[in-house]
Design a protein around this nucleic acid. Structure first.
Lengths: 148, 148
DNA sequence: ATACAAGCTCAACTTAACTTGAGGTCAACC
DNA sequence: GGTTGACCTCAAGTTAAGTTGAGCTTGTAT
C-alpha cells in the first residue's frame, strides 16, 4: 500500500497509544489540529503524532495541558513544524526538566536527611523551606497559600 | 505559657501551611489521625506535623494521596513513630524518587535527542516506548504515577 | 455572662483530564 | 445494497484533591 498522507482519528489513536476521545479532547483544547473530509471526519497530518507524543511525555513529568498548550504556541499554525521549531520547544522543556530534576534531588536528600533524622522540629526542617519558597522574605511570616 | 502537648486543627493548619479543610480531608482519607475532646473537637499529637510535611512533599513530586496512605501503613497506629519507623518510610520514598529522577533524566535526554532531532519516525522514537504501558488504564484523571 | 472566633458535619461545588453513552452518519467490503 | 465498524456531536459521569457554605456547637476573652 502506498504511504497514506493523512491519518484518521483511529489511526492516530492506535499509533499514539491515546484514546480517540482523548484526541477529540486535545483538539478541543487546541493542542492538536485536524481538517475535515467532505463527510465531516477528521484527518490529521503526520506531525500530529509527534505532538501527541510530546503531550504524553510532558504530562508524565507533571506538566499540565494548559502549559503544554502555551508552549505549543511557539509552533507554526499552518506549516508542518521544522526541526528548528521543535528544537525551540525542546529547549523550553529541557530547562523545565532540569529544574524539576534538581528539585527532586533536593527533596530526596531532604527526605533522607530529615525524615530519617528523628528530629522533632518541623520548623527548622529543610523540607519546610520548600513550601515557603515563594514567601522567603518576611521573617517568621506564615503564608497559608498552597503553591501550585 | 507551658508547651502545649496537643494541637487544634487551626494550630496544625497554621504550622503546616495547610488549610483546615485539607486536614479534615486527610483525616477522612486515613492519612492523619486525631482524637476528640469532650466537646467533639479534634486534637492532634505533634507528629501530625511531620506527617503533613511528608504528605506535601510527596505530593509535590507527584505521588498521589492513596500511594502516600499506602506507604503510611507501615507506620504504627497507636504510638508516635520512632526514628526507625520514619527511616523505613524514608527508604521507600528514596527508592521511588531515585526511580522518578532516572525516568526524568531519560525523558529529558529523549527530548533533546528525539524531539529536537527532526526525525519523522515516531515509532522508533525512544519516547514511544514509555507510553505503551500507560495506554491500558482506567477512566478519569490520570495522575503522574511511577511504574513499578 | 455573653459575644464571637474557632470547630463540627455534611452536601455541593471546582478543576483537570478524560471516559462513557446516546443517537445518528459515513464508508468499505461482500 | 446492506450490514458492520469507524466517525460524529453533545451531554453527563468519573477521579483526585480539595474548597465553600449553611447551620449548629464550643471555648475563651472581656
Amino acid at each position: 500500500m502506498a504511504p497514506v498522507r493523512e491519518l484518521t482519528v483511529g489511526q492516530v489513536a492506535m499509533r499514539s497509544g491515546v484514546a480517540v476521545s482523548a484526541l477529540h479532547f486535545y483538539e478541543a483544547r487546541g493542542l492538536i489540529r485536524s481538517h475535515r473530509t467532505s463527510g465531516n471526519q477528521r484527518r490529521y497530518s503526520r506531525d500530529v503524532l509527534r505532538r501527541v507524543a510530546i503531550i504524553r511525555v510532558a504530562q508524565e513529568v507533571g506538566i499540565s495541558l494548559s502549559e503544554i498548550a502555551r508552549a505549543f504556541q511557539s509552533l507554526p499554525e499552518e506549516r508542518t513544524p521544522t526541526r528548528e521549531d521543535w528544537n525551540l520547544l525542546s529547549t523550553v522543556w529541557r530547562d523545565d526538566l532540569d529544574q524539576k530534576i534538581a528539585q527532586m534531588k533536593k527533596l530526596r536528600d531532604g527526605l533522607t536527611d530529615c525524615i530519617g533524622c528523628g528530629c522533632m522540629s518541623i520548623d527548622k526542617c529543610p523540607l519546610r523551606n520548600k513550601e515557603d519558597r515563594l514567601s522567603a522574605q518576611g521573617s517568621g511570616a506564615r503564608r497559608l497559600v498552597v503553591a501550585r
